[in-house]
């Protein structure tokens, strides 16, 4: 997978705003941002109400995903260009989600909404409704999704990459610093996990750093690209961003996102936990 196949820039986006084979989709942590304004012609996906099962902690079923995308006017043949705020944090999560259900051509707008806004590019408030389609999804590709028992077996064996901030990794914070800190689970990280914050991979304007810089970030932190890799964060969103970097930009094999992440692992009874700035022992 090359960078050109998974990333588009603003010029490409502008040239394809009216392209019927392309659908722009905004996915934001602030789901109301779309209501204020968005890229012309873009539809919205709500990471919570659209992409999460309303009862269990899991994703929507294949049938529900098909119904959702059909209703949004997206077909399996469309090139889907995702973008959102905070360095494409949630857009990358949606990218991984689309890949989980087998969508062939998904791309991210490099830099997302932030770069677009900081460059003072046009945003509109008009909402479009695309013609309904019959979307056909694939069964979940679990080669890119890790579950808790696989994570425990991977301690000291595979690359474990904790992409949270250093303070969350060390146990000094339980959540990102833009959120209140009261949580139920214990603090810390999975032993042997390297701390490579997701944010290291993005420039200040939200665009991804060069492949050379990205590879150096992971190698310097001890990632062995000959091994399988599991990335995790707090609930699997930031680690989807790092999964995108490792799997889609750098072409690393066998990279999985552990979407249960720290809110699941840190609540498990009897599993090992490491505290402090060092990875700890298996």
């Amino acid at each position: 997978m090359s960078r050109n196949e998974v990333l588009v820039d603003a010029e490409w986006a502008i040239a394809h705003l009216a392209d019927e084979k392309v659908v722009f989709v905004e996915v934001d942590e602030d789901t109301a941002a779309y209501d204020t304004n968005h890229i012309s012609g873009a539809v919205r996906l709500d990471w919570r109400s659209d992409l999460q099962d309303g009862t269990r902690r899991d994703f929507v079923s294949k049938e529900a995903f098909e119904a959702l995308l059909g209703k949004k006017g997206i077909s399996a043949d469309h090139t889907v260009v995702l973008y959102g705020g905070n360095n494409n944090w949630f857009a990358a999560y949606a990218y991984w989600y689309f890949k989980l259900y087998g969508h062939k051509d998904v791309r991210l707008l490099d830099g997302g909404r932030k770069k677009w806004e900081l460059e003072s590019r046009e945003l509109v408030s008009e909402v479009v409704e695309l013609p309904v389609t019959t979307y056909v999804a694939q069964e979940q590709d679990t080669s890119i999704r890790a579950f808790r028992d696989e994570v425990i077996k991977a301690i000291g064996v595979e690359n474990l990459v904790d992409v949270r901030s250093p303070d969350e990794y060390a146990g000094r914070l339980l959540a990102p610093a833009h959120l209140p800190q009261e949580q139920s689970q214990v603090a810390g990280h999975i032993p042997t996990a390297a701390n490579i914050p997701w944010s290291k991979t993005a420039a200040e304007d939200g665009s991804f750093k060069s492949d050379e810089d990205l590879k150096a970030i992971y190698e310097t932190a001890g990632v062995d690209f000959s091994k399988d890799t599991i990335a995790y964060c707090r609930i699997g969103e930031r680690s989807a961003h790092s999964w995108f970097v490792l799997h889609e930009l750098l072409g690393a094999k066998n990279v999985r996102n552990y979407d249960g992440s720290w809110t699941e692992y840190g609540s498990l009874v009897g599993v090992p936990v490491a505290l402090g700035d060092e990875p700890g022992q298996a």
Partner: peptide
């Protein structure tokens, strides 16, 4: 599950200790 995402302007202090 609450998001890790950032709320515009920051999370309200209502109900925060």
């Amino acid at each position: 599950m609450s998001s890790c995402g950032a709320v515009v302007g920051g999370v309200s202090l209502d109900r925060v200790d």
